[in-house]
């Protein structure tokens, strides 16, 4: 078997992405913990740690550019390198959203808690599981698992709708709750966006495995 060295570099690229994904997952975990336990110090630590994810994003980008320039990969190898470049951007954005959740959590912690947090942690753990599964699908190159992740995005969307209605009723009943309710809906929106980024990752995995671009392929909604 020739090409061993190149294969090693590709394997290393995958490892780096798995590491970045692990970090992004932990950012989500800690961001939610900071919100639920009203721990602003933890929120600050998550915000500070975002630069580590950014640094990995740059490192992965550079590794991919180098692989493209020096090895001119084709076929599956080419799909792996281009997918890795896009995937690291998605993970970086997921981590940015965790950072944004922490910023809102710090603001929320300055006021009494509006309501017990139930749906938000549910959305959060669903998003986190989706990140994990999408990265598992990437590492194992499992298109079936990737497709399953895409379906989960709808649950997160439903939860966000439900939460939004609830927060709206708070705001209608008592205008004093508006600033907190808006911050909570920002958090819900961040979690919903996370799930969208994970969906992108899962779609990239299908491309990696099957060479098919499945994003933007759902039939157009009639006006």
């Amino acid at each position: 078997m020739i090409q061993r060295h190149f294969d090693e570099e590709l394997a290393e690229l995958k490892t780096k992405l798995a590491r970045m994904a692990g970090l992004a997952e932990d950012q989500i975990d800690k961001a939610l913990a900071a919100l639920v336990t009203r721990d602003s110090a933890l929120a600050c630590r998550v915000i500070e740690r975002d630069h580590k994810v950014n640094a990995l994003d740059v490192e992965i980008d550079e590794a991919c550019i180098e692989l493209l320039a020096l090895h001119q990969p084709a076929a599956h190898d080419l799909r792996l390198v281009t997918t890795a470049m896009k995937l690291s951007t998605e993970l970086e954005r997921i981590s940015d959203l965790a950072e944004s959740i922490c910023e809102r959590a710090i603001e929320l912690n300055e006021e009494p808690q509006l309501k017990p947090y139930i749906d938000i942690p549910r959305m959060g753990s669903l998003a986190r599981v989706m990140v994990k599964e999408s990265i598992d699908a990437f590492v194992k190159e499992d298109a079936t698992l990737a497709r399953k992740v895409i379906v989960n995005d709808d649950f997160v969307d439903d939860l966000m709708e439900q939460l939004f209605r609830e927060l709206l009723s708070f705001m209608v009943e008592n205008p004093h709750t508006i600033s907190r309710a808006i911050r909570l809906s920002f958090i819900a929106k961040s979690l919903e966006r996370m799930a969208d980024h994970v969906t992108n990752i899962a779609e990239l995995v299908v491309y990696l495995v099957e060479g098919k671009i499945i994003r933007h392929t759902s039939p157009p909604v009639p006006l």
Binding site: I2, Q3, A74, A75, H76, R79, G211
Partner: peptide, 18 residues
């Protein structure tokens, strides 16, 4: 053919594995 060949043999050849 260079992004998504349909045969394994082609894939192996264009990626330099055989």
């Amino acid at each position: 053919l260079f992004t998504n060949p349909s045969r394994k043999q082609t894939e192996d050849y264009i990626t330099g594995r055989f």
